[in-house]
Design a protein around this nucleic acid. Structure first.
Lengths: 116, 116
DNA sequence: ATTTTATACAACTTTTAGTTGTATATGTCA
DNA sequence: TGACATATACAACTAAAAGTTGTATAAAAT
């Protein structure tokens, strides 16, 4: 019973973060306070069908992703980064070729320096 | 906004009737008053995720059927009897072979006479 | 340093889910 | 026939929870 709340909440949070949207951002998109979004994510407040549809639309994902089947559930739960785009896969592939620790560190220093 | 409520409500009613369950029956299965089930069906009360999962379980259908895609929606909306079992298809097939009106009427009188 | 951004949580208010009570229609069975 | 059961509908009330506002903290940005 409460499990569902927590699962849905965790998924909302995950999908939101994947899209790079803040609680405030999502809150504005669906028309509630960001504190209310916190309650959705933490499972302290239950979510109506309408709200879930609002959220799915705001995050641009099909509602069905909030109701993963057994098999899909495992995937949703265990792959915190979700599906990777081709670009991201390439990034990982290239990054994993780097053997030298210092080279990796240097890369991160560069990445951390980027502001846009 | 309210449209969703009404759609979900109509689907609950349809699925319930397809299973031959009364409002009271469903109410008991999900642990609310039958009057509350009425509100769900009429769209006067919104439904939480948990409740919808309860209902889906009680009616023994996957939740996904409450969120039909565009194409499926048309089907759900326009086929009030839902999918037919093989037995029911056969029944229809045999019934449609009957040409004589009086024979049909006689059949219905028989059916109406059955009490179990 | 201080201002902005993101998140967290407690306390309060308002909305509404859910209940109870009553009414109507249909079918059952003495 | 009429009493009895079943199925649905709707209004009025209560209890519960959705949703708000206010305050606190940490980490980035300027």
């Amino acid at each position: 019973m409460k499990d569902h709340r927590n699962l849905i909440g965790r998924l909302i949070r995950r999908f939101r973060l994947q899209k790079g949207i803040s609680q405030m951002g999502l809150a504005e998109l669906i028309g509630v306070s960001y504190q209310q979004v916190q309650k959705y994510e933490s499972g302290k407040s239950s979510i109506s069908i309408e709200r879930l549809l609002d959220i799915a639309e705001a995050l641009d994902i099909p509602v069905s992703r909030f109701f993963p089947s057994e098999k899909e559930l495992l995937y949703e739960e265990e792959s915190p980064y979700g599906e990777l785009t081709e670009e991201e896969k390439k990034l990982l592939e290239l990054f994993r070729r780097i053997k030298d620790r210092n080279t990796k560190k240097a890369l991160f220093r560069i990445l951390e320096g980027i502001k846009d």
